[in-house]
Every structure is written in C-alpha cells, then in structure tokens.
Amino acid sequence: MKQLMIAVRATLVLALVTGVAYPLLVTGLSQLIFPHQANGSLAPVHGKIVGSELIGQRFTKPQYFHGRPSAAGNDGYDAIAPGGGASNYGPTNQKLVDRVQADMKTFRAENPTFTGPVPADLLTTSGSGLDPDISPASAEAQAGRVASARGMTVEAVRQLIAAHTQGRQFGILGEPRVNVLELNLALDQAAGAK
C-alpha cells in the first residue's frame, strides 16, 4: 500500500519534471536560439511562406523539377495524410510493379529528350512521402525538359543544379542530393532577374 502511494506520487512528479518542465524548457531555449529551425525552417518568397525547406511539395508543371513519387495522401506530399506517407509495398507486390511501370511511362512522355536509364529514387516513393530531395542523377534526367519549358539553355539549368547539389555530409554521411524546392525557387529567381 505504501509502495502504491509512492508509485502514484513518483508518476505524477516525474510527469511534471519530464513531461512539462523538460519540453517547455527545450521549447523556450529553442525558440530563443534556433527560431528558424524550431518553427519548421519555413521558406518565404517575397514575404509569403511557400512551404518548408525540409518538407517536399508537389510539383507537376514542366518548368519545375519534380520530386519523387509520394504515397502521402491521394495526390502525394500531404503532410497530414491519415494513412501515413509510405507505400509499404513489399518488394514482390504487384502493385509496386504496376506503379513503377506507370510512372516510368509518364516520365518518358514528359522527358522525351532524356533517353538514359531512370534513377531508382525517381521511380520509388520515400518513407515519409515528404522527401524534399532527389538525387543529382534525377535532377539531370529532368534538366532537358525544364530548360526547354523555360527557354533556358541546358547548360544554365545544369549550373543551377550543381549550385544546389549538396554532397555527402562531411564527405561521408548520407547521399548527395538536390533540394527540389530550393532548386525550383532558384529557377524562378533566375527567370525574374532576367
């Protein structure tokens, strides 16, 4: 009985310390020291928020680079999709094969000038459904389409890709990648500056 009372008190006291004091302290300090990161690394364009640098968004127009296919929500890149963001297809699931084949067809139709093999990340969905990045190879595969849709030279588009390619962190961690939103905003900015 005595132990039960201790259990009740210990649970409540620890709930106050670890469940209220600790997260509120971290919130206060984060808001003070890292306000940009703590509030979602938001990306403003002319003072208007167009999304988060960290969260992928859907691009469909030919003049923009497209992200990876996304299983989040009906149209993809739904950050509050109740069913989550992953396809959860196993490697032998026929639905996976069908989806990849359909996406392959779409990609070839949208990018007639690109004839090379299609990189793996451009035909697969990410675990979060919110992947903000594509591989440099996937950006290169779309460079021709974006250039012709914008009336830019492919070389100019490639330069922008190179400028927005992040290598492996510290040269070893993770994989090289291109943030699709940042690259597309840079394209718009280059067009506006002309």
């Binding site: 990876r68 992953a86 396809s87 959860n88 297809y89 490697p91 032998t92 996976l96 094969v97 990849v100 084949q101 392959m104 093999p117 299609v118 990189p119 793996a120 990340d121 035909l123 697969t124 969905t125 990410s126 675990g127 979060s128 992947d131 990045d133 594509i134 591989s135 440099p136 190879a137 996937s138 950006a139 290169e140 993770g174 994989e175 090289p176 990648r177």
Partner: peptide
C-alpha cells in the same frame, strides 16, 4: 530485380547511390 526488369536503374554511379529506394529517403540512401 523485379524493378530492374521494369527498367529501374539500381546501380550506384553518375549522381545516384541507387539500390532499393522504395520507402527510403534520398538524404539517407
């Protein structure tokens, strides 16, 4: 291999790490 047969490029090189990327994030590979 089922996706390779469907034309997906899995091999590393030329700007991608490749591999079985279904369900994985680009930044992690």
């Amino acid at each position: 291999p089922i996706l390779s047969a469907a034309g997906v490029e899995h091999r590393p090189g030329l700007g991608q790490a490749g591999g079985n990327m279904e369900g994985k994030e680009t930044r992690f590979g």
